[in-house]
């Protein structure tokens, strides 16, 4: 009984260490706290178990989720620069993104690939969206990371546009 519990706790610690996606990491943390509180309970420390369950698996994960949702900058790296998406104010792609960032109170940061060398300029993980142009069907491909919780929202806002196709990738696939 105890051995299974110890094993589960160690298993979840290892999973937490290996997990890169923030939202899933928070959920593993909550499960870990739950298991720890079961351990306290089995050792007759009922008050500690109650405190652990209230803080570790309810309050802190909620805090972290709110922190994730409060992303302030929306970093876009564009590999295309044409009439659909450029630095000029009037172009349609730019306006679409601006409407999205305005509605969530984000600051829009756009980098064009040929101006900035991405890997040197900022860390890989900070990029929220990469814009590419597909050679096959001529659509603009919006590549987003799975870990960014904004991808559901951006998708909902921009879905009706026929020129755009979405691709959600895993964390480490983003630079291929």
């Amino acid at each position: 009984m105890y051995l299974i519990l110890y094993g589960l706790i160690i298993f979840f610690i290892i999973i937490m260490l290996r997990e890169k996606e923030s939202l899933r990491l928070i959920i593993y943390f909550a499960i870990f706290s739950l298991l720890m509180s079961v351990l306290y309970f089995l050792y007759y420390a009922y008050d500690v178990a109650l405190a652990e369950i209230a803080i570790g698996s309810a309050l802190l994960p909620l805090f972290f989720i709110i922190a994730l949702g409060k992303q302030k900058n929306f970093v876009v790296v564009s590999r295309v620069e044409d009439e659909f998406f450029s630095e000029k104010e009037g172009c349609p792609g730019f306006r679409l993104l601006e409407r999205f960032t305005d509605s969530f109170d984000l600051t829009l940061d756009i980098f064009f690939e040929h101006h900035v060398q991405i890997k040197g300029a900022f860390r890989e993980r900070n990029v929220d969206l990469i814009i590419l142009k597909s050679h096959r069907d001529g659509k603009y491909v919006f590549v987003m990371k799975k870990s960014s919780i904004l991808h559901h929202k951006l998708r909902r806002v921009l879905q009706e546009d026929p020129r755009i196709r979405f691709e959600i990738v895993e964390e480490d696939e983003i630079y291929d």
């Binding site: 008050d47 109650l50 405190a51 209230a54 803080i55 309810a58 309050l59 909620l62």
Partner: peptide
Amino acid sequence: QGGVILAT
């Protein structure tokens, strides 16, 4: 503990 639950 109760205070934390109220805050949650």
